[in-house]
Amino acid sequence: MFDYNFHWRPVLKTLPDLIQAGLTTLEVASLSMLIGIVLGLCLALMRMNMTGPLKWFAVSWIELARNTPALFQLFFFGFGLGAIGINLTPYTIILTGLSFNCAGYLAENFRGGFQAVPDTQLKAARCLGMNAWQAYTRIVIPQVFRVVYHPITNQMVWAVLMSSLGMLIGFRELSGETQFFASRTFRIFEYFAVTAVLYYIIVKIVLAASRLLAMRLFRY
């Protein structure tokens, strides 16, 4: 029954490459989260405060991002745009795809966050003589940020996990690199087992970092 010989040596030999690829995964995930946070904030504000085409743009972005698989979105940015002559590199595909997806999910989180901050806060800030920009950036957004901090952390974990889809569009982040080595050595199980462990470690590092940052940010 159990006549499979495990060969861990080739995996260990390429471990530095895998860790390097793990850093690429982190890089892509963090970059797309940064873009996603900025875009998501804009989308949430557009959905709440605008009317007409701008609102519909935001609503359709959010609903499309939330109601179709991330892999579908990546295929769209890869093959779909390729068909009309826009050829993106795998790195750009995964970055745009993840940012698109994160922005949609984060926009809904931000909307919840904005609704959790009472209107009176904004009014009070305006009464104290702040202009709209100051009131938003100094009073409202810091409070929103506190509410959405935990969802943002979750989304960051999702971004790390979703970046594994890069494997299917030929991007060499952690999964892509693993597949590359696995198909070269045929040690599929061993390679993917090590990669699973690496992902687990990356996710734990992200969660720990977020907890440390929270302690630093929300001291009082």
């Binding site: 979703m162 999964s175 599929i188 993917f192 699973a196 992902y199 687990y200 996710v203």
Partner: peptide, 23 residues
């Protein structure tokens, strides 16, 4: 926790290749 911290795609590939090993 492992199932939540490892990408689904890795889980799928891993299981698909692991199942034959244990018969």
């Amino acid at each position: 926790d492992v199932f939540r911290s490892v990408p689904l795609i890795i889980q799928l590939v891993l299981f698909y290749n692991f199942a034959p090993i244990i018969g």
